[in-house]
Structures are given as structure tokens and as C-alpha cells.
């Protein structure tokens, strides 16, 4: 197989996804098939060919480092699943 179940589990963990046993099997098969198709790229000789990450040539977009108005705190927090005293609340991360 192109991608093993263990590799799917490893990558899912990197991507912070929690997959059940059925999804792992299904994904290993489906992604394996997609990767086999992607392997057609190996037929192309790319020796010495530069990479393209953006199709339009752009210089660095510099701007003045000046203070501007930004979203106020209440608006930035308006969609938070949990908030307190103007902060985002997350589950406890440090054991006391």
C-alpha cells in the first residue's frame, strides 16, 4: 500500500485530527489511490527547474510600521466559544 495505516495515524496526529478505526482504513485506501495518481509527476523531468509558489511575480510588499486602528477587543472575542475578562478561555494546560 502507498500509505500505511500507521502513517495515516501519524499524519492525523500532526494535523490534530482524531480518526476512528473505520476512517483510518478508508483514508489509507483513498489517499493511497490519490498518491498513486500523483506519482505520474515522476514522469516529468524537473532537473534544474525552479519551484513556483506564486504565479504572479511580486516584490516584498513593505509598508510603514505605523500604529493603526484594529479590531476592538469585544469584537475580536465576540465569536469565542468561551471567554472571560476579555480573554479566550482554553482547557487547563499546566498541572498544578
Amino acid at each position: 500500500m502507498k500509505i500505511t495505516k500507521d502513517e495515516v495515524i501519524h499524519v492525523a496526529n500532526l494535523a490534530r485530527l482524531d480518526l476512528d478505526e473505520d476512517s483510518i482504513d478508508l483514508l489509507a485506501g483513498q489517499i493511497g489511490k490519490i498518491l498513486e495518481y500523483v506519482d505520474t509527476l515522476n514522469r516529468v523531468d524537473t532537473e534544474g527547474v525552479p519551484s513556483t509558489s506564486y504565479a504572479i511575480f511580486l516584490n516584498n510588499a513593505f509598508r510603514e510600521d505605523s500604529v493603526k486602528e484594529s479590531l476592538d477587543r469585544d469584537k475580536a472575542l465576540a465569536n469565542a466559544p468561551e471567554k472571560e475578562d476579555g480573554n479566550f478561555v482554553v482547557p487547563k494546560v499546566i498541572n498544578s
Partner: peptide, 23 residues
């Protein structure tokens, strides 16, 4: 699950919350 959108509130550990929310 922190800044906006859905959060799985069942999970009490941060990593579990991330994984469950996204899945």
C-alpha cells in the same frame, strides 16, 4: 475551537479538545 466556531466542550484536556473539535 479557541477563537471562533465550534468547540467540543466535553473534552477537558487541551490536546483532546483540539482533536475532537476538528474531527
Amino acid at each position: 475551537g479557541v477563537k471562533y466556531g465550534f468547540r467540543d466542550r466535553e473534552k477537558s484536556r487541551l490536546m483532546d479538545m483540539y482533536q475532537s473539535t476538528r474531527s
